[in-house]
């Protein structure tokens, strides 16, 4: 059967559409090609405020385990928990004389998680391997093996030492 010019043009159009769909899917998953990213190892903290005793113990049990995002749409790797600090929670009180004072909340604890992550970075910031931004003040819904949490990113610092193979 003879290959007509019209047939070739249609085939080429289909190939272009398929390739564009593949490239678009890859860009959607890996991030846009216009944003140059480099792999980066970084350490960051997440502050969780006012948890109860059971959750505080759950965070302590989560040391040296992996953490993940846990909102409806994202399950990104958040890295390995390398530090857990638990201290009594405080909150402010507006006094009768119109001033503010800080006081400990009974049976509540503030938790600071320190995590290390193999992610990516560029001029816009640090990102998880799945391209979610990790920046100071950012709200993260996450979980460890034991605890679901809602916390805020504290500081982010790059680390030069390569993370062990197999770690996030």
């Amino acid at each position: 059967m003879k290959i007509t010019k019209r047939g070739i043009i249609i085939d080429i159009i289909i190939i272009v559409i398929v390739l564009a769909a593949i490239i678009g899917t890859v860009m959607r998953i890996k991030g846009t090609a216009t944003t140059a990213t480099n792999s980066a190892n970084f350490e960051y903290t997440i502050n969780i405020y006012g948890v109860k005793e059971g959750a505080a113990k759950g965070f302590q049990a989560s040391n040296d385990t992996d953490a993940f995002m846990a909102d409806n749409a994202r399950t990104d790797d958040l890295g390995k928990v390398v530090g857990v600090e638990v201290k009594p929670a405080k909150d402010f009180i507006e006094m009768a004389d119109g001033t503010f004072t800080m006081a400990e909340l009974p049976n509540r604890y503030d938790v600071t998680l320190t995590l290390q992550l193999k992610g990516t970075q560029n001029d816009r910031g640090y990102f998880t391997p799945q391209q979610s931004n990790i920046g100071s003040g950012g709200l993260i819904l996450g979980r460890t093996k034991y605890v679901f949490f809602e916390g805020y990113v504290g500081g982010v610092t790059p680390i030069d030492t390569p993370l062990p193979a197999g770690d996030n």
Binding site: A55, G58, F68, A70, R143, K145, V147, F148, F149
Partner: peptide, 17 residues
């Protein structure tokens, strides 16, 4: 039980959720 979760058939058992 996996390294990262106590996974039920429908959802994980996780403190605080």
């Amino acid at each position: 039980e996996t390294a990262s979760a106590f996974a039920g058939a429908g959802e994980n058992v996780t403190i605080g959720k």
